[in-house]
Amino acid sequence: MAIWTHYYIPQTLDEALSLLCREPQSKAIAGGTDLLLELQQGRHPPVRTLVDLSQIAALQRLEMSQGALWIGASVPLNRVIAWPPVRHFATALCEAISLIGGPQVRNVATLGGNVAHALPAADGAIALLALDAQVLVASPEGQRLQPLLACYAGPGKTALQRAEIIVAFQVPACEKEEASAFRRVMRPQGVAIAIENMGIWLRRKDERIEDIRIAVGPSGPMPFRARQTEQVLRGKPLDEETLAEAEKVLKSEARFRTSPHRATAEYRYHLAGVLLRQTLQTAWERTQLNFAEELGPLSVKG
């Protein structure tokens, strides 16, 4: 059963943008691992034209520049995972995308698609939010750099227009005393979307947390920054008293709900405490490592 009529593979960004402007019922496609399934199952409005973004050089970028990682929006996840700077300077992101799908899915799935699909618990997006990534968006009017959450309009609903394309993500590289970690709970193992996930970035000063960012999914309609919890933790030592207070605040500010047959809200609130403690502890321990060389193997499922 054909689920599209025309399929274009443009070589440049301009070409892609003009195709998306010109063609009615058009849609950009990268790995297609979510999109094709939704089209096939009738959960997406029908499309006539698919515009493939996999051959555009600007979207294939992978480089370190001025203290930031630039990750092209249509680089397959397995290539991102294999790129050493991601593992060293954006560890949470490396951990998160290593858990997306199985190896076959990661061979084609992209970070651009992960964000454009706009799910509130997308592993890539949760990690990007914790790492304070900026998004480079191209439109017929030109390119702009915007915060990640500006790409979201609601659950599964992107704020991007049809003729707008995510070009790349700018992810600040962790510096000395900074580290990040990502955890998720899922069933079954390996191929499921998260029941709950969490990304944490922090900067340590001596025995205190100097600065921290916590991202949680699925809490509310889009990836959620636990700002009140961050505030509780800022400037504090990582002791039981702080943790207990942080856990309490996280459970009050997060908005978990029940997904039939996957998890009740009650279970998710319980897990929030578990994930907070585990992820925080891992990130904290990583700040003591002298960067990548000592990082050791991540729990990357291959």
Binding site: Q189, V191, H261
Partner: peptide
Amino acid sequence: VLTQHLSTYLIPSVLD
């Protein structure tokens, strides 16, 4: 049936 897909009716993966 509320678990009509293999995404909601979970069978073991190789990791389970």
